[in-house]
Design a protein around this nucleic acid. Structure first.
Lengths: 346, 346
DNA sequence: GTTAGCGCTCAACGGGAGCGAGTGCTAACA
DNA sequence: TGTTAGCACTCGCTCCCGTTGAGCGCTAAC
């Protein structure tokens, strides 16, 4: 026995209803409310029995309706992937409005984006920014702050990326620092932050007259490089949305979930994994995150200049409104790709 | 009838017990568990009846124990104020450890501090950083980014504060921008960010040869000034801690609370008000924030160089462990004052 | 292949009994 | 006059049990 066209329609009806109500769906509901092929509840009952045997439905207990299984959701999402309904002009305008203010800082951008998606979907949203080491240098400036201390300002395509204090030679004048900054900018422009350290080592000899400054510059860059290694900005939006769902009406469950969001570490790995395709779906235990057993997560990756940059993830109950989420994600991934691409063109 | 020494001891015992258990406290408990003056439950009963008449206790219903009123908490906190127990060396070491990494960015600093306090107290913690307009300029740099675009980097005593793009004259060379930057730094150093705009206007004539750059610089500073007007960094730690308390076991209540935290606007006003004393206590509706009716909030303000800079607030159920919270707050307020003062001395 | 109907199952709801923590009051005691 | 023991009373909480109703599987008829 395999799944046919009619079984599929029934399954869709069940999933749709369950997503809305969070209550086991009975055969009568499918027959009366969704009118699948005009079949009676008895026929639906037979088909549902088959769907259960095939592993698409679960029955919490004998006299209850049925509930979609993870396998069913996966099938459902797969069928949606090609045909994710476009957002209505109204919806996309609303999203755009929440983003409209010109974003200068990467952090602001992804925070706004996370909030916007959270609001549009009603679920918790997490966004990982581009990896720090992958950002491309635009300009580097050593700004004197006091006698012996200077601030290292590194401007990348995602705006001011990092600043570290460094010690300077006491007799290094502002002019000297300026000259060094210019040379560095000239020679390092376009490299990723990760590539700067090694290149600096190579430049060392040609800048021997500024040996001490170079020495502490290399130190500072090394420090930045190490810190930046797998650092990404992570933004969370709508964390409290999870409390809207009866799945998380238990305070303890909700708390472990929210604590997980606050800690950020899990989010980093969640958003890092599985970047091959455009969308990734993980259900329940597949996430590997404690406190997310009753959650599903869809991630979409975004790019800049064709390269993978980061990912947006929407986390909700397993019975998520996948169709709507997919369209919002698609919109936002495109928006971020464009915005980041533009800013790197700037 | 007024409150005497013995009534006070009984009241303290009741508050202590209620803070731990969240259950109405009966006369027998006070007598047996807290052994106040070795009195029997009958005597305690009489005293409790008096305390209720005086408005320090409430009775949820006839056959239940009694619950402290807001008036009682206020008295309780007042009595603690002078004598907030010091943190044990272990506790303060633990706090310090969570802060140890050298903080370069204000945002990192207050985020870490908020988390540390949240962890130490078990309650939600919010911290407001110094007002942007009050920060003092250390250095200003116009960093060329492309042909006509430059980045305005403003370094204050709280590290890199804001950067805005500005348009530059197409024939302004990096050297010119550098020279302008140096002059600006010389002349503006030590001013607060709020004072820069007006001063720039005054300098305009003396820099007429760089008229176009000055023009867009003034524009950019104006923009920054307006944006910064009442902008403060706000950090939240341990938002999910509220879910630990039966007062917030209702998902809807918890959600409005968490949504309020995410929106940040209320927090800004909460932390702005009442800076006169060192500590401020607000109970329930006094906060004026929807969703905080069952909360209390203690705020402590911190200073730098003697001036008020910002505030730390701990939000928990009305039956908060005030003693412990006060000592943690005292520690952290001092830490922030010192750290900010040091960085402004840097 | 589809449908009507019947009997069965089982979670959820609601009312009533019993329990127990806690009070107020009174009377006795130091 | 303050303290204490004792007793009757109150009232929320929990447990138990009967009822309800949604939903299923199965069978027989169309």
């Amino acid at each position: 026995m395999s799944i046919d066209e009619r079984k599929l329609r029934i399954l869709h009806a069940i999933i749709d209803d369950y997503i809305m109500t969070a209550m086991p769906v009975g055969s009568r509901t499918v027959s009366k409310k969704y009118k699948v092929d005009g079949l009676s509840s008895a026929t639906i009952r037979n088909e549902m029995s088959d769907l259960e045997a095939l592993g698409y439905l679960d029955q919490p207990h004998t006299s209850a309706g049925r509930v979609p299984s993870a396998k069913a959701y996966r099938l459902y999402v797969e069928s949606l992937l090609g045909a994710a309904p476009k957002l209505t002009p109204g919806e996309s305008a609303k999203l755009r409005a929440r983003l409209s203010a010109r974003e200068r800082q990467l952090r602001d951008l992804i925070e706004r984006a996370a909030r916007a998606v959270a609001e549009a979907t009603g679920y918790t949203t997490v966004i990982a920014g581009p990896a720090a080491t992958e950002q491309r240098l635009k300009s580097i400036q050593i700004v004197p702050v006091s006698e012996r201390v200077a601030l290292l300002v590194i401007v990348t395509d995602a705006a001011v990326f990092k600043d570290a204090t460094m010690n300077t030679d006491e007799d290094a004048t502002a002019e000297q620092l300026f000259i060094i900054s210019r040379m560095l900018t000239d020679q390092l422009q376009g490299l990723t932050v990760g590539e700067i350290g090694p290149r600096l080592e190579m430049m060392r000899s040609s800048l021997s007259e500024h040996a001490r400054v170079m020495r502490s510059l290399i130190d500072a860059m090394g420090r930045i490089g190490r810190e930046a290694a797998d650092t990404r900005e992570i933004a969370v939006g709508g964390g409290s949305n999870i409390l809207r769902f009866p799945e998380y009406s238990d305070a303890n469950k909700a708390r472990t979930f929210l604590t997980m969001l606050e800690a950020r570490e899990y989010l980093r790995t969640l958003l890092a994994a599985g970047q091959d395709g455009m969308f990734t779906l993980r259900i329940g235990a597949e996430t590997g995150v404690p406190g997310m057993e009753d959650c599903a997560m869809i991630t979409a990756s975004y790019t800049a200049a064709g390269e993978h940059q980061g990912a947006i993830g929407v986390i909700g109950p397993v019975r998520m409104r996948y169709g709507h989420v997919l369209s919002v994600l698609e919109f936002m991934a495109r928006y971020l790709s464009e915005t980041l691409f533009m800013s790197s063109e700037l």
